[in-house]
Amino acid sequence: MFQTGWMRELTRALLDFAYPRICLICGSALHESEKFEVCDVCHREVSGAKFPRCQICSGTVGPYLNTVNGCADCSKSSFAFQSVQSLGPYEEPLRGAILRTKTGSDSALTSALTDLLWSQEKERLSSLGVDLIVPVPHHWIDRIVSPRPPVELIAERLGGFLMVPVEHHILRKHRRTPKQRTMETVTQRRQNLRAAFTVPKQAILDGAHILLVDDVLTTGTTCQRVSSELKKAGASRVDVVVIARHVSQQSQKSDRVTLESSEEAITG
């Protein structure tokens, strides 16, 4: 038993010597006490713990603001999803880290960000009592460029933590659309995703509580569309979890339209 432990420690020391652990965000050397593959400095920078956040939409808000019923950005909107949990705001260095994962080639960084998210939000996520985890789907053409979208790895890792099944085929994106980040207004974002997602008729979601997973939530248009389809198919509730939450300045212009239209929103 002693020998096994001794050999394990020796192997770890040799591996650390040959391949020293580095922070997957900034590249600095990691101390042996740092349990994540991200240094403590970057962890603090990407964490949402230092930012007051809305309890409903996870958007950054001012200090001492009561957001039990939402913030100024979401309290007057009717969403098809119930709540949003996130690691932190879509700002540097988290923004840069997420952009690096977009091609699906940096699975280690995706896993590390998901681990940080789980460490920070595990109590809230565990208390939701979800039945099923569903990642936001990509169009099949986009999957040629990125065969393994990071959102799928995030969903599978969270599924392992929560011990909840992950379903990759319950949602389909049957119409390819321009990237949401290229849309200047919320109205354009809404129109861009019109009729883009479907739930197959054979899917059985009767009363299911679903955790919808994406990497970034900006105005919420994508999650709104997808959540609406899931609830039309029989889901009783949808909660959202993302790595980063961001409300763009562009989306707050005077022509902003809230996501409460009767066509999109399903209350309940």
Rank of each mutant, 00 (worst) to 15 (best):
M1W: 11
V38Y: 01
F79I: 15
I22Y: 00
F51N: 15
K231T: 12
P52M: 03
A49F: 11
L109Y: 02
T222A: 01
G59V: 15
W140D: 11
I22G: 07
E45L: 13
D255A: 11
P149I: 15
T60C: 06
L10W: 02
R181V: 15
V130K: 06
I25Y: 06
K102L: 02
F36Q: 04
S251T: 14
D215T: 04
D206N: 15
V41Y: 01
R245E: 03
G207Y: 08
T185G: 05
M1F: 13
G59H: 09
A244W: 04
S119R: 09
L158K: 10
K76C: 10
E152G: 08
L193S: 06
T177I: 04
V164C: 06
L116V: 08
E167Y: 02
L87K: 10
T221Q: 00
I154F: 05
G160C: 11
P178W: 03
V247C: 09
D214Y: 04
G104V: 12
K179C: 07
T222H: 00
F51G: 12
F197S: 10
R157I: 15
S236Q: 06
G160T: 10
I154C: 04
R148G: 06
L109F: 04
A196Q: 03
I56K: 06
G88K: 11
I98C: 06
E92W: 07
L171A: 14
G5E: 13
D214N: 05
R194T: 12
I243S: 05
E184T: 15
A233L: 08
T110Y: 00
R175Q: 14
S146R: 08
H174A: 14
T218N: 05
Q55M: 11
R95S: 01
H174C: 10
R124W: 07
V241N: 09
G129Q: 09
L230D: 11
S227C: 08
C57F: 04
I243D: 03
D106W: 01
D131Q: 09
S77H: 10
D142A: 14
I56Q: 04
I98K: 00
A195E: 12
E152R: 01
S261P: 07
C57R: 07
T177G: 01
V134Q: 00
I204D: 14
D142C: 06
G59S: 13
S261A: 13
W6Q: 14
T218D: 02
P165I: 09
V213F: 01
D239M: 04
D73A: 14
E91H: 12
A196I: 01
A195I: 11
K232D: 08
A49I: 15
